[in-house]
Amino acid sequence: MTAPTGAIRAGDGPRRFVAPLRGQVDAACFRHPVFDGYGDHLDLMTAARWPDIDALNAWMPATGPRFVVQDATLLADGLHYEARIAQGRIATRAENWHDLFNAMVWVRYPVLKHALNRQQCRHLERMGSRERSPAQQALAQFDESGVVVQVRDTTLLDLWDRHDWTALFHANAGRWNDGGITVAAVVGHALMEQVLVPGRLLVGKCLVVLGDPVDAIARVVASISTGTSLVMPTELRPLPLAGIPGWHAEQGAAFYAQKDYFRPLREGRVYPRPL
């Protein structure tokens, strides 16, 4: 079955996603659950004018890296993007949705972003900048499309591991509201950018925290920092976000039967234990 009319799966086709102009974006899209946790920054997304670098830096801690305009002068230093962050400068393109959302994640989850950057820099020192190791690919995928999911009911994790999407989302819809399984945080700025175009069917790349920790993000940060997580891209569990109850307008049985979006488990695919 094909996707509903107007629905586009993120990643379909070879074309690179092009975000709409600021004036073309319906502010209603920022009510999407992807933006839960970023309500304090609503003005950065909805104001008529783009926030400038000073406005972004006003949200950052007094110490640590600062956003700097990415221009020819900055790029002339020849540094890798991640190496430049380690020196305290986050290259940020002007009037750019992708970089604005990246800035918002830095503001909301700076410890997580620091952990990702430190690991990237360690691999850069070993690999150089011409090739990416599997760990660098995993780190980049989580940075772009990452979601932290907290699971308290292990039977739901079993359904997810088997890609039994109808049971996970439809039959157990109530468990997404009673705490059995919860999206603790969306940290992938590319996912946010995709929401600007209504109807896109997003897929998160997830790290799973089991149980009821005080701070799921802290557990993820600790695992990344020790090199326990994000060593291989296959560690990341795909989650079709439009399947989560309330995250998409069409969620009947036919919707969950779309195998081009709710994909069956690939033979031999095994996911790691949750954190």
Rank of each mutant, 00 (worst) to 15 (best):
residue 161 D to G: 07
residue 252 G to F: 09
residue 176 W to M: 07
residue 38 Y to H: 05
residue 82 E to I: 14
residue 217 I to H: 08
residue 123 H to M: 12
residue 68 V to K: 01
residue 133 S to H: 05
residue 182 T to P: 00
residue 199 G to E: 02
residue 75 L to D: 07
residue 94 A to K: 11
residue 163 H to I: 05
residue 126 R to G: 10
residue 249 A to E: 14
residue 132 R to H: 10
residue 167 A to F: 02
residue 9 R to S: 14
residue 19 A to L: 08
residue 43 D to H: 13
residue 41 H to L: 15
residue 218 A to D: 09
residue 145 S to G: 06
residue 44 L to E: 04
residue 148 V to Y: 02
residue 196 L to M: 06
residue 40 D to I: 04
residue 100 L to P: 01
residue 236 L to Y: 02
residue 17 F to K: 08
residue 194 Q to R: 10
residue 186 V to C: 08
residue 11 G to T: 06
residue 142 F to H: 03
residue 103 A to S: 11
residue 3 A to M: 03
residue 171 A to Y: 11
residue 269 R to T: 13
residue 211 G to P: 02
residue 2 T to E: 14
residue 193 E to L: 08
residue 18 V to W: 08
residue 74 L to E: 02
residue 120 Q to A: 11
residue 187 V to H: 02
residue 222 A to H: 05
residue 263 R to E: 14
residue 16 R to N: 06
residue 7 A to P: 06
residue 177 N to L: 14
residue 153 D to H: 09
residue 101 F to Q: 00
residue 261 Y to A: 04
residue 160 W to M: 13
residue 59 W to F: 13
residue 86 A to L: 12
residue 155 T to H: 11
residue 194 Q to E: 09
residue 189 H to L: 10
residue 262 F to D: 07
residue 224 I to W: 03
residue 139 L to Q: 01
residue 16 R to K: 10
